[in-house]
Nucleic acid binder design. Structure first.
Lengths: 245, 245
DNA sequence: ACGAAGGTGTACGAAACCGTACTTATCGGC
DNA sequence: GCCGATAAGTACGGTTTCGTACACCTTCGT
């Protein structure tokens, strides 16, 4: 956001806008430029809720450097993360599926900025711009793919692999090797014990992949971390990559 | 399919068509009638593949009394079911998200009929009929919700609960208390051992909920079965119910 | 009738993970 | 500098599920 650069077009010289969200930035320049005025930049604090299950959807958030978690809450109070969204996606996907009600709860996992668009503007863009609608739906597809991968991942892969996957994904999304996250929160997201995450984090630390200090993770070696993660890391990554093509 | 009944309309008397698939049958009568000619009724054998991951999507299947499974395949050869589709849905959801390529593999789990529509006709309907497009997208939403629920379910619920959930869901979909399914296949779908399913089936049998004989399940008491299932059974059921409204 | 193939019952040690609890370390506020 | 609060390290018995193996039973083809 706020990045402007002079681009030489074939017809004219124009100031090009970049939102910082990769989905929006994949729009044709003319669509992207039009969208600038629809976006309000909001800085979200960690653990701040953005969407509540069953509630009306007033806006869509396109993360810039924030990371949001979409969770399923079980009757016994347990929550499990069913989707993670950073600059490669948006929340809530329901709006791209002709729904005005949020089917899941979402909150900010790693503090940062989002580009917020009112549901009215979003719907208008969906109706009026084919490229916009296509891009949003392609992103929903990647998001669905990702959630499907999580079904298999949570079923078959170890706590260590899943921790590594989560950290690797998140590092990619925040665009930084350092971000805030407690073992406790990660354990809730993965649906495992806090102690289990501590053990996994220790293992990853001894591998030299990460460093952990009181709620702050630092990725020391992204390749090592990716290597410790299960295949789901790469699978989801490439799904989102191809959704922008 | 094949059910015709005389209905007195306000304007004229008309023969009403029913496909047997609840999504299609939720269309306004005029749209539904138009779709009749687009559907080819195909009977699928158990374990017959309908869509392959990475392959082009040539058609969309709207199950009538067949049940299809959408699976994620892991690199080590394991498969885990990420979606189950019966008369309340369709395969592949990707087509409703502007994609021509299947992102997952799907096959027939319980033999039966599907209404098959070519991708060309599907796309045309999506473009030309608002109600059709809305209904399909609402169904994708329910399908996404369901997959999200599976993430939590596979993470937190016991093999017994998940077996009960699967059997209860499937009985609803085939519209019969009896269908074919081996322990082996169910174990693959749930991502657990075959022996684990056998134990769970035995427990459910002793509860009086089901009967199992060499690849054929009979639901003796649907309420008991539903009671043994986790909350995910009802959650998914109501998600699909409301998607047709 | 007989054997092969497929489906199910059952067993058992091993591993992963759970629930919990207690300790230790670090940070912010006073 | 101290204290309360939050975060992380660690331990341990208990449970679930795993991996595997083997026996038995039904079905089907010959």
């Amino acid at each position: 956001m706020g990045q402007y650069q002079i681009v030489l077009g074939t017809q004219m010289t124009t100031a090009m806008f970049a939102s910082g969200n990769r989905v929006l930035d994949a729009l044709p320049p003319v669509d992207l430029a039009a969208i600038e005025q629809d976006l309000e930049i909001v800085t979200l604090a960690a653990h701040q809720f953005t969407h509540s299950m069953g509630g009306p959807i007033a806006y869509v958030d396109f993360p810039i450097d924030a990371v949001l978690s979409v969770v399923a809450m079980l009757l016994n109070g347990d929550s499990v993360e069913v989707g993670t969204v950073g600059c490669e996606g948006f929340v809530e996907t329901d709006v791209a599926l002709d729904s005005l009600v949020s089917s899941r709860t979402a909150f900010c996992q790693v503090r940062g900025r989002v580009g917020r668009m009112s549901i009215e503007n979003f719907d208008r863009r969906m109706d009026q711009s084919r490229p916009f609608a296509r891009l949003m739906r392609h992103n929903v597809r990647a998001s669905l793919f990702s959630t499907q991968q999580f079904v298999a991942c949570n079923t078959k892969h170890s706590v260590l692999q899943r921790c590594a996957r989560w950290l690797a994904m998140t590092a990619d999304r925040v665009g930084s090797s350092q971000f805030t996250l407690t073992h406790d929160f990660l354990s809730i997201m993965l649906g495992v014990r806090r102690a289990g995450v501590s053990e996994a984090a220790d293992t990853l630390h001894r591998l030299g992949a990460i460093e952990y200090r009181r709620g702050v993770v630092t990725v020391l070696d992204a390749a090592l971390l990716g290597g410790a993660a299960c295949e789901c890391y790469e699978a989801c990554k490439s799904a989102f990559r191809s959704s922008l093509a």
